[in-house]
Simulated assay, not measured.
Amino acid sequence: MRSEEDLVATMRTAAERAGPRELASGVAWRRRARRTRRRVGAALAAAAVVIVAGGTATVLRGQERQVPPAVLSPVARVWPQAVVKVPVKDADGRQTLPVNGMNATEVLLFAKGAKGKVDRLEVFDSATGRTRVLGDVPSRRPQRFELGTKYIAWFEEAGFWIMPRQGGEARRLGPLTGEVEKIGLTDDSLVWSVVDGGVYRMPLAGGAAERLPGTDGLHLMSWPWANAWAGDNMSRIVNLETGRSSDVALPENVEMMQCHAQWCTGLQAGSHLIVQRVDGAERRTLPDTLLRDGFWWLLGDRYALFRSREGSPFVVYDLPTGTMTGVGEVTPTLLTSSPTSTIFWDADAEYYQDCADRVCVTKSRGGGKEHTVVNLKAVTG
């Protein structure tokens, strides 16, 4: 069996070689979906849980360059209620990985059995310091987990699955319709979008899938929100419950614009990162310490994760307020459907860059006892 360090290294390599443009948007696969899936699909299936993006590949000579230690104090000072320590192994010796915040104190975990397969879901409660089992995951290659008010859902090649949010037996809903990219949950239905655009619905009680009218070209963000794209920019935000649609105000020479329901971030003129409301209001340029050629990712319902050139390896940025906090060498999960509200890293690990053929890949050694987790649900509820 491969060690956790080997797994992380493999996932990090796959992510870095995919390139920043392909990994920048955590809210849609769009035209890049098939290409990205072919490139990292096999590795994702083997891991069944995460893809690690430790930063952009760096070109330099030599075999190894040390990465500065993570600066943990800023996030602990700014949002102390959000920072918790989660054991890397549960009481049964299964390896765990944080997936998403369920509420202000609970974090959903993947738990991997002896063969490295995700075989059950667990919840760590920071209020009690304890982990409880939700239930077994019978599917072979679970993907794109989503949290609803009543259920947790995911899908695999054979179809969709749901499990009660409070725990219980998983139940298969039905076969996939189209090439599924993201899923969502209402109180009574599973919804999903497909790579070529279009949103579908299937009753949780069972029944046939139906395509939602007026959703041609739309891609699910986080229910009830969907988006449309123009090239590499998100261009329109749609509320699928109300039908209300808002065009994204795209400034000149912007690329890779990605949005929450109200806030967006993108790269302008290839030289600086910007933040704005969907309608273009309150536009501002972000500090040069945030790498424009690096990595950014939407988190929760109002945050973004940026690669940093100074201090902490990564920065969590609150788009509405401009609050910026330093975090460690984060391991973003790519298999949540809505933007995850949880980020984590191993504070005890030493990170370095292993270089070959003029390409350097971030790896780690040591650590392996606990995850340092930031649960953004504890900040905004």
Rank of each mutant, 00 (worst) to 15 (best):
V99H: 02
S338K: 14
R30K: 11
G168F: 13
N100W: 06
G159C: 15
D188V: 10
T149W: 07
P74N: 02
E4R: 08
G294D: 04
C360V: 11
R172F: 12
V199W: 06
Q143K: 11
T36V: 13
M163R: 05
P320C: 11
G197W: 02
V50C: 14
L176T: 09
T131A: 02
P224V: 09
D136H: 14
T323Q: 09
G300K: 11
S341F: 02
D247M: 00
K369W: 04
G368P: 08
S312E: 05
P213W: 02
A304F: 05
A153G: 10
V373Q: 06
E210R: 05
E210F: 01
E16A: 15
G243C: 09
L273T: 01
P332W: 05
T215S: 04
D288A: 15
G207K: 10
L240S: 02
V83F: 04
S139M: 12
K85P: 01
P138H: 13
V133A: 03
L240C: 05
Q258N: 14
L173H: 07
T13I: 11
T131G: 06
Y351S: 14
L109M: 06
F306S: 04
P68M: 06
R211H: 03
R236A: 00
G280H: 03
V75N: 03
E282A: 00
A28L: 15
V238R: 03
D301K: 15
D318E: 10
L267P: 00
H219W: 07
V195K: 04
R2F: 10
A158C: 05
R61F: 05
C355W: 05
M234P: 04
W297Y: 10
V195R: 03
V84C: 06
R141D: 07
L335G: 01
S222A: 15
V191W: 02
